[in-house]
Amino acid sequence: MAGVGLALRDGGDGGAPLFAAFAGAGAGLALAFSPTLTRAPATVRPEDAADASGLLATVTQLGRLIGVAAFGTLFLNRLESLGASGAYTSAEALLAGMDALALTAVAGAVSGLVRRRR
């Protein structure tokens, strides 16, 4: 995500670095979501599988909703504050949002490693 923000920070079309950043982000999402959504229900007793499946789907959707709201608010807030000064474009607000997404991904990866070691 940080790569997407960096590729678009100058207000251009991003070119090849943008496509590389999107490919990296897609690969990261594929490597994160698939194992998580596969492994989480595997630890549940068979009689609780239906409830766990519903809970997993609900939490996943809720996480997406909260993420869009939080990072969208960050982007719009940054865009508004940068627009007031007249010195920056929306690319700077996008960079701030992508940096926040990257930091969130790092925090999630670190928390997963800490939990696994216990």
Rank of each mutant, 00 (worst) to 15 (best):
A100D: 04
L8H: 11
L55P: 00
G63N: 06
D13R: 08
G12I: 02
G97L: 13
L8E: 13
A93K: 08
A7W: 12
L82A: 15
R117C: 07
A87E: 15
A42P: 05
A21K: 12
M1R: 13
A32Q: 01
L82G: 08
A42I: 02
A25N: 06
F22M: 15
A2C: 12
G26K: 08
L74D: 06
L76T: 08
P35Q: 09
T60V: 04
D10K: 03
R45W: 01
G26D: 07
F75R: 01
G83Y: 02
I66R: 05
V114G: 04
L8T: 11
E47K: 04
A84H: 02
V106R: 00
G3S: 09
A20R: 13
A105F: 08
L113T: 08
L74G: 08
A16V: 14
R118F: 09
R45K: 14
M98W: 02
V110E: 00
G28P: 01
R116P: 05
G11E: 00
A50Y: 01
L37R: 05
A57E: 06
L31V: 10
T38W: 07
A105M: 08
D48W: 00
P35H: 12
L37H: 10
F22R: 10
A21P: 15
G28H: 05
L18V: 10
F19K: 02
Y88R: 14
A42H: 14
T38G: 03
A84V: 10
P35D: 08
A52L: 03
Y88E: 14
E47S: 15
F22I: 15
R78W: 06
R45G: 12
A93Y: 11
L29D: 05
A40V: 11
A57M: 07
E80S: 15
L65N: 14
G54V: 02
L62I: 13
L113W: 11
R9G: 02
V68C: 04
L95K: 00
T38Y: 11
V68H: 07
A91M: 04
R78E: 07
S53Y: 06
L79S: 14
T38V: 05
S53I: 01
L74V: 15
